[in-house]
Amino acid sequence: MTDLLQQSTSLWNVSMFIVAAVVLLLVVLFFVTYAIYFERKVIGWMQLRTGPNRVGPLGLLQTVVDVTKLLLKEDTRPKDADKALYALAPVLAYAPAFAVLAVMPFSETIQFADLGIGVLYYMALSSITVLGVITAGWASNNKYSLIGGMRSAAQMISYEVPLVMSVLGVILMTGSMNLREIVEAQRDIWNVIPQILGFCVFIVAAQAELNRTPFDLPEAESELVAGYHVEYSGFRFAMFMLAEYVYMFGMGSLVTILFLGGWLAPFGLDFLPIPGIVWFILKFLLYVFFQFWIRATMPRFRADQLLPFAWKGLLPIALVNILITAVVISFQNGTL
């Protein structure tokens, strides 16, 4: 697929790109639909309930009708909202969520862009979403959404630092920011083992980046009702919802690639005739399940303990991890 990029522009390869992008979009939409379904099922099972079971066989069409309902709903807007920003915010939140998927190598062959700075691209683009969230919080002209927006800004910016710092260890080990090379470098051992400290920091910070339990303060239902999207309804709300779950898709892919060996088979099972994408999906689903599991268990962080936890807790650990990694690598290279 990547060799399409090397070819000169022609009608054929441009249309191929468009087709591939649409296919990815559909895959993502399918994932989001069923991620929501499985989230509700898994949490339901953990809470002694059966989860959705009314629409379609086993409730499989539940999310489909939910989304249809959202799309058919009247598009409401508060009277004193900032019209332009109110409309812009969901787009701003959603567009980067989809754009980050371009660099993800889902298997050896399925990748859209093989950037040399894949990790950086992901981090840079994903931080645009926080702008969408703040914009939504401000433009809705609602105090709850304003507080939600502010919390979200503080949280996402703070947790981005340990997130990036925890990845640095992996980058040091690989010597590259290219996601494909990072996966290839894990042939012998997955990064999760030598980088266990970085992995833990990454998982926690990712949770905060995704605004998911226990870091769901920006939309804390019991405090801020719904936080930054309290005034949104219909398809604009659907965009926020979609952004949230697409980010989960993105973050799941990133964790798989950075720490869990991407499409590589685990435990030396390379001889099995299983395509890499299957391994990728399995690892990815493991992460997604972990998300749901956490959500079914954890209470929410307190707003005033959130930032100290990032700056005084996670960041030092991430820095120590970098230091240890650097020392070990220097030692191995004989430079120390």
Binding site: W45, M46, Q47, L48, W293, T297
Partner: peptide, 12 residues
């Protein structure tokens, strides 16, 4: 505890 409940008897 929550993981164990995955397979527990549902009360719905």
């Amino acid at each position: 505890y929550t993981f164990k409940q995955l397979t527990a008897k549902k009360v719905t």
